[in-house]
Computed example of a mutant assay.
Amino acid sequence: MDLIKVVIVEDHKLVRSGIKLLLGSDPKISVIAEAVCGAQVLEYLMKNELPDMVITDFHMPDTSGMELLKEIRNHYPAVRVVFLTMVEDNKIITEAFDNGVEGYLTKDISADELLFAVNHIAGGGKYISANLSHQLFLKPLQGLQKQDTATTSLEFNSREIEVLDLISQGMTNSEMGEKLFLSKRTVEGHRRSLIEKVQCRNSAELVKFAVKNGLI
């Protein structure tokens, strides 16, 4: 089994050590380098074998995480980029995914969620912290509830919101079932219900609908 090779970019030594320790608890993950700023990680990428993933803070001494993301996307497109940060601004989160980030995590997530996210992203998926995904969903939904009922006739129950959230993260029915403690068949039922409710043809169009209407 191939190891998931990770580079950590974090200017606070104690935080960096903690992240490394947590990642090291998973035998499938190997932290191959550490950096304290964007320039260091770019120098490392230029001179060494490329990692599978760069996990970086958003605020750094020399540059922003967004600029680092753009540099990596331009020069090392195969390297996955994950933000691990305290920044919870919805505009920044949206911009990050628009620029090709694979994961957006907050530093208050659990060790289990961090490890799940790294493994999920390494497998080709995308991931956003559960607390952020709920925040992104609840705010527009609260706005919808305040609108005149003639504006929208769509209503989503809490389980449908959770499923739509996970669909947007690229999870399979099996993965969603494990996370929500539901059977694969039940998750598929929720997926079909959402597709029928918004009158789209597939999950890709469902996610587009959610983006267009400010749900994700």
Rank of each mutant, 00 (worst) to 15 (best):
V87R: 01
N74G: 08
S133G: 05
D165E: 10
E205I: 10
E178L: 14
V54S: 00
G123P: 05
Q145W: 08
G214F: 11
K126M: 12
L141C: 05
L105D: 00
E49W: 08
I109K: 01
T56K: 03
E49H: 06
G143R: 06
D148C: 09
E162I: 03
Y127N: 01
R16H: 11
V9P: 03
F156G: 00
S158N: 09
N90M: 12
S168H: 03
D112W: 11
K70V: 10
A33I: 07
K208M: 11
K107C: 09
A39T: 10
T186G: 06
G170K: 04
S174N: 11
G65C: 07
T151D: 08
I4A: 06
N74H: 13
P27T: 09
I161V: 14
R192K: 15
D165R: 05
R159E: 06
K126E: 06
H120R: 08
D2Q: 09
A122N: 03
E155V: 03
N202P: 11
L136K: 03
M66V: 10
P27S: 12
M171W: 03
F156M: 01
I29D: 01
S133W: 00
K179D: 02
G18Y: 03
S110H: 08
K70H: 07
G177V: 08
V207T: 12
K139L: 14
N74C: 13
P140Q: 02
L23P: 02
G189A: 07
T63I: 14
N157G: 06
S203F: 10
A111I: 10
V163Y: 02
I195T: 04
V54G: 04
N99S: 12
M46D: 15
H12R: 12
E188N: 14
R73A: 05
L21G: 11
N157S: 06
V211R: 14
T85L: 05
P27A: 10
D26I: 02
P77S: 07
G214R: 05
E102I: 07
L114N: 00
M171F: 15
I32E: 02
L141V: 05
E102T: 06
Q169V: 08
R16C: 12
N202S: 10
S64K: 05
I216C: 13
I29H: 03
K13H: 15
G38C: 04
D165T: 05
T106F: 04
I92C: 14
S25Y: 13
N74M: 09
L69R: 02
Y127C: 01
L182Y: 11
A122D: 01
V81E: 01
D2C: 12
L68A: 06
F209P: 03
G125D: 01
F97R: 00
A35F: 06
I93Q: 00
S158T: 08
E34Y: 09
G100W: 05
S30H: 09
A39S: 12
H75Y: 15
K91H: 13
G100I: 03
E160C: 03
N99D: 05
T106S: 09
Y76F: 15
G170D: 02
Q169Y: 08
Y76N: 01
L50G: 04
Q199N: 11
D165F: 02
H120K: 13
S174Y: 12
G103D: 01
G124K: 04
K20W: 12
D89N: 13
F116H: 06
I216Y: 11
E205A: 10
S17K: 15
G38I: 00
R73V: 11
